[in-house]
Design a protein around this nucleic acid. Structure first.
Lengths: 167, 167
DNA sequence: TATTGTTATACTCTATAACTATA
DNA sequence: TATAGTTATAGAGTATAACAATA
């Protein structure tokens, strides 16, 4: 009996090239002097690698910072955490739901106020976060490989001063 | 005849507080040493103001950089522009459609290749971009108000070196 | 066979508004 | 009357996959 032709493997379109910050021959105009664009460029480059290393752990940037803030400030409420990372309360619900489903975070009742929860890491969550932290630390080392420790400190300090004076 | 009670103005919930980068009393753990998070913090603070100043002009960050790249490199194709700003081709279509609908950008036929377009600013687009540029420049001045010119140059140079060595 | 622009589609984020149960 | 968490919903933004016209 005639063998059916297996479907020819479709050529993968859009083999996403890694983002290139300064393409030779392109004139960027004032973009090269705009802090906001320099930040955007650096962020694209950084997030690409963050996703590649941490998505297998189901960790995204907002998840990472949320878990870290819960670890360092046990008992935070959802509203407090939402303000800390700059999202609205309703957006925090799905995030904590996910953490709970993974068994990483507990919603503990708050004594004296039955509306609110205290957020705490479970031991499983703490162990998972430890793995994530070491990967992030490794990424940081790689990212900073072209910076001296003094330059990195300088960069952090300068970033902290950028933006509207009040922030 | 009895006047109908006008609906009592509902209290606005979620009066969005401006993002605060370092909340007193909160422990940020290793987040304070992570370049990626420092960048994220600065970006949130910066984009809030960008939106407030530029959205009335219908300008968003990707629109701004796209228009600027078209101005400085007239004749770019959509695929080239998409790669420059780090989005896929299909995402560029809606962006250019919008520019065309506003009358800011023309799709010129490419001689010798009827598949592609050369993108160019219209005079209306150039004029609009000029206004946007001056507002962005003003924002830059405000954002950099706490940085000396030398510090700003240093920041741009350091941001350029952050990330995977190849980028 | 490859490429340009396009469409269709879906998924993630995140926002607003309204609801509930508490306070 | 206000607040914590929640739900419903909608709008950006951006991704993948497939397609037509063209190379």
């Amino acid at each position: 009996m005639p063998k059916t032709q297996p479907p020819r493997p479709r050529k993968v379109e859009n083999p996403r090239k890694p983002f290139e910050r300064h393409v030779p021959g392109i004139r960027y105009g004032m973009l090269d002097d705009v802090v906001g664009y320099a930040i955007r460029r650096a962020q694209i480059a950084i997030y690409e690698e963050f996703d590649r290393e941490l998505l297998p752990l189901k960790i995204t940037p907002p998840r990472f910072s949320s878990l870290l803030l819960i670890e360092n400030n046990p008992g935070l409420t959802q509203t407090q955490l939402a303000e800390l990372i700059g999202v609205v309360r309703s957006g925090m619900v799905a995030l904590i739901d996910f953490f709970e489903a993974e068994g990483w975070v507990r919603r503990d009742g708050k004594a004296g106020d039955r509306r609110a929860y205290h957020l705490r890491l479970t031991s499983k969550g703490a162990a998972h976060l430890a793995v994530a932290k070491s990967r992030v630390a490794a990424l940081e080392d790689r990212w900073s490989s072209r910076l001296t420790p003094a330059e990195k400190r300088k960069l952090l300090a300068l970033l902290d001063k950028v933006g509207p004076p009040g922030a």
